[in-house]
């Protein structure tokens, strides 16, 4: 466990906490970007360069921008008068704490059985491309279909319905 890991993990968790806790929705989206960047750094720390850069491109480049667009289109940056938390926030908090307790207990109980430090795997983008085009070609095609369907679906759902044109 290096100092770098603790620093990146702290950054990621601080970003995630801010994204969930802040009152202004635009600030939440910015904090979410910090959390995504921290996750990309964690991926790089885990020697998964391709996944790390895919994380930066997809999440920071697309999802975070999409979230900001949605916030501005719905005028969600105005803080509502009756608070930002739901009526039954205490139950949600208890459920989340319970889930973390179970997950943390499971990890700590099995910590001795987990594998120790291994040599860093040398995985090149060439290998990933070869795997995508040979063994994982069917999932790749299905993801392509899913992305097309999601694209068309999102456009149709968000398309403006003109009055009297239904």
């Amino acid at each position: 466990m290096s100092l770098v890991f603790y620093a990146i993990a702290g950054l990621t968790l601080a970003g995630a906490l801010a994204a969930v806790l802040l009152k202004n929705t635009v600030h939440c989206a910015l904090a979410l970007t910090v959390a995504f960047a921290g996750l990309a750094l964690l991926f790089l720390e885990l020697d998964a360069q391709f996944a790390g850069f895919a994380q930066i491109l997809v999440y920071i480049g697309a999802v975070a921008v999409l979230v900001v667009f949605a916030i501005l289109l719905t005028r969600g940056s105005e803080t509502p008068k009756d608070g930002v938390y739901s009526r039954n926030w205490l139950a949600g908090l208890v459920i989340a704490a319970g889930v973390f307790a179970v997950l943390g207990w499971a990890v700590l109980e099995s910590a001795r059985a987990l594998p120790h430090e291994t040599a860093a795997p040398t995985v090149t983008v060439l290998q990933i491309g070869n795997a995508l085009m040979s063994r994982y070609v069917l999932p790749l095609e299905i993801v392509a279909l899913l992305l097309t369907a999601a694209l068309i679906g999102a456009v149709i759902v968000a398309m403006h319905e003109k009055e009297g044109q239904k």
């Binding site: 968790l13 949600g92 908090l93 989340a96 704490a97």
Partner: peptide, 16 residues
């Protein structure tokens, strides 16, 4: 696990 719990808490407690 901590990140998942933070996300779950956000999804369960926010109104927006």
């Amino acid at each position: 696990a901590l990140l998942f719990s933070i996300g779950l808490a956000g999804a369960l407690t926010r109104r927006n």
